[in-house]
Design a protein around this nucleic acid. Structure first.
Lengths: 317, 317
DNA sequence: GTAATGTCTTTTATCGGGAAAAAACATTTT
DNA sequence: AAAATGTTTTTTCCCGATAAAAGACATTAC
């Protein structure tokens, strides 16, 4: 008889002093279930580990549960699939989230909600209590989040919210434009043997498909948007430029969730701009690239700015 | 009789379960001692608080100790200085450091020491034990430090050292040059009423003084360097540009500590470049500014690059 | 009645502990 | 002997607790 592993058995304990959720296990378990569907038997433990991006310890916990619930027969190397996974085999989606994700969502909801004005102070303890997590996790989140330039720490004291203002959007787009123009210029200078050209071709195809079905699939644009821009930014071969895209991606991610007005219209325009941008890149003509890039960035900036309510001028220092 | 405050009495307990050092109090106490020298009596508690940058709670702890050690007579509003502070009144300098500073120093020593090669992994627990602090503080430090682009986190696993390599220096200086050229251009466009021109004049005077005594004071350049560049960067009015100077400052700070070769010679050249740069800014001629800025940044890059041993080429991806 | 001092409460900074997850080591199996 | 499985050790992640420090409230002095 095999003992239940520590990982798999967690969550069954009565909730006192509970230390760490086993979301890594649960998420990997769900992903493994989807893998199960297609094959009659599972690969080796190390192979499964790399496939799922987890350690063998977690793989074994997954296999243990799959055996217990009659999904597979497991004996040493042989792991035969006994039946197809049913909906009730999956762990609930909300139990697979990282603590960091949970905190980020709660925090962003607050930030984008009504009364989040610049200058407001952020209370770690209050946030932690509200979300139902420890203060350490909230602190770590705020430190990580601070690089987005929306909050600032007062030594030995609270954090200050700087606000999702017009000024913020302008500062963000200023850097974005600088970085993307430079990256795009670096992109066209890449040799023809580089793998990026194939990636670009792939993205072009996906853009055309999306364009032809834009009426129904317009909400899939945001993911495609990120992939194209990240591909271009990577051509800079500069970690600061690549990393800065995290800031942009974060803002746009929540911006898209928040501001659904004219979404279809906006995305339709953006897809066409992307196609022009891709064509310019493929021409490898720096002038054309510069023009297409500027045009797209200008309308992206407009979109972002129009979604920010406040229209006041910044006060001079 | 006044009870000893919690803040002032800490550190006297036997070291078990010690939770938080009272370095804020000790540092403020030392700074307050220096203040003492010049006046016959101290201002009100709130005033002292703003002066020292601490809360009234800490101010009262300081006053309590000053009374106990016979430095002042304290009764309500009257705080009369009884004697000048003696060396033994001060807390030892090393007890006034922030935990973050302690961790940063230890970490950088390791990083700049011999066997710190790219790809090496960083162990939170080991670091914490070596420095003699809790893991939480080390974790928080690493998260904050990660924005410098020298380390990277593997989810649920260790950190990876990316190394203080030639590639890093090139990527850093690329952004620096982009940002500084833009800031300098914004600087000359500032109106004549702006306070920056007076600040610039002040810095010019300090530069001239330093230049005339460069033989003995060359090691004071690094502080002046930072002040001039921060002044210029602030003209961008862009938080991302301003914040990025933290990365540069950090690198140069440790670089200067590490690489003392030809320090005097280098700083002598740099001071002259700064004076030319300042003159260009004062001329408010964009062309001159651009030229002076480029010249200085070019030699700054050379200095940084020449200090990095490894001369290998980066492997293509 | 304003601004200080005196007192009490809340929040931040930091540690130690414990479960989840990774990683290292030992033992089989092919 | 290479690569799997079985077992043990380490490390990461996260919580609760506690002293330092900040902040809020109450009282007194001018």
């Amino acid at each position: 008889m095999r003992l239940k592993s520590a990982v798999a058995s967690a969550g069954e304990a009565t909730g006192q002093g509970m230390s760490k959720s086993n979301n890594v296990y649960k998420d990997a378990f769900n992903r493994c279930l989807r893998l199960l569907d297609e094959s009659k038997s599972l690969p080796s433990e190390p192979e499964l580990g790399t496939l799922l991006g987890v350690s063998r310890t977690t793989v074994r916990s997954i296999l243990t549960r799959m055996e217990e619930t009659g999904l597979i027969a497991w004996n040493k190397r042989s792991k035969t699939v006994l039946r197809a996974p049913r909906p009730e085999d999956f762990f609930p989606e909300e139990e697979t989230d990282t603590l960091a994700e949970i905190i980020e969502r709660s925090f962003m909801r607050r930030l984008l909600a009504s009364g989040a004005e610049a200058g407001m102070q952020i209370n770690e303890l209050e946030l932690a209590r509200e979300i139902g997590v420890g203060t350490t996790s909230v602190r770590e989140f705020l430190i990580r989040f601070s690089r987005f330039g929306l909050i600032e720490k007062r030594r030995n004291s609270h954090w200050v919210l700087k606000g999702f203002t017009r000024a913020f959007a302008l500062e963000l787009t200023e850097i974005r434009e600088m970085f993307e123009l430079r990256s795009a210029a670096a992109f066209v200078a890449l040799p023809l043997e580089s793998a990026v050209w194939a990636d670009l071709d792939g993205l072009e195809v996906e853009h055309r498909q999306l364009a032809s079905e834009i009426a129904t699939r317009f909400n899939e644009f945001s993911e495609l948007d990120e992939r194209l821009h990240r591909l271009i930014h990577r051509a800079s071969h500069n970690r600061f430029i690549v990393d800065f895209y995290d800031v942009i991606a974060m803002i746009f991610h929540y911006h898209y969730q928040w501001n659904k007005a004219e979404e279809r219209q906006r995305n339709e325009v953006a897809v066409q701009e992307h196609l022009a941008y891709i064509a310019a890149l493929k021409s490898r003509d720096p002038g054309k690239v510069d023009a297409a890039c500027r045009k797209h960035l200008k309308s992206a900036r407009q979109t972002l700015l129009s979604s920010i309510p406040e229209g006041r001028q910044a006060q001079p220092a």
